[in-house]
Design a protein around this nucleic acid. Sequence first.
DNA 1: GTTTTATTTTCTAATTATGGAAAATGAAAC
DNA 2: GTTTCATTTTCCATAATTAGAAAATAAAAC
Lengths: 110, 110
Amino acid sequence: MENETHLDTVFYALADARRRRMLEALAESPKAVGDLASSAGLRFSAASKNIALLEAAGLLYKSRQGRQIFCHMNFDVWKDVAGYVAMHAKFWSGRLNELEKYLGEVNGND
Amino acid sequence: MENETHLDTVFYALADARRRRMLEALAESPKAVGDLASSAGLRFSAASKNIALLEAAGLLYKSRQGRQIFCHMNFDVWKDVAGYVAMHAKFWSGRLNELEKYLGEVNGND
DNA sequence: GTTTTATTTTCTAATTATGGAAAATGAAAC
DNA sequence: GTTTCATTTTCCATAATTAGAAAATAAAAC
């Protein structure tokens, strides 16, 4: 599902520090909308709209639990992004060691 | 040089299919502004503005050759993007083989 | 069923982004 | 130095984005 329009919305969604902060919170564990609002320093209504944007980009999905709505990171979409980046980052070819180091540092070799 | 604001501008720059098309053209070889305009299906003035945006994001740099201005892909910035993607794509951990395959397919194992 | 909690929607106003056209710049050709 | 070519800048009109406030929904608690 990696078409032009989709990449538009994904990259656009990532082009905002507060939205990225929400995703960073989600990377750890699913969070309710209200929690994400605080993470990003936004009011409820603004957070809700930004979350809808992230959802439209496929970067997260929601599930209801009682009165709360939980957001979950959709890791699959990162594959599209990674694919696009890899495509244009030709320079990574033959430098997988370097990327491996990156991944190791960033993820703590887990 | 991977700060929040920089990522904002980089992702924003990537969030437009025509700008990505220009970058795709540049990945192959440096191109004059006029050539990029046609690649993206834009008039000169519009192309010039989008190129300025890509330049501000650090995705390309310019060099003058006679009356033409050539744009060159700046591969280094992709490292920032790749780093960010890798950071959030935890799921890639332990799946480097898969990524390797990706890179192989995409770059034709060169 | 009324209240409370969690979230979304609607509406408005302010800000920002966009392309096109035409004028302006900059360098080369003559 | 005047013309030509390549690109940028300015100006304008249009469209898109955003947050905030208040009203609306939706589900649970009482």
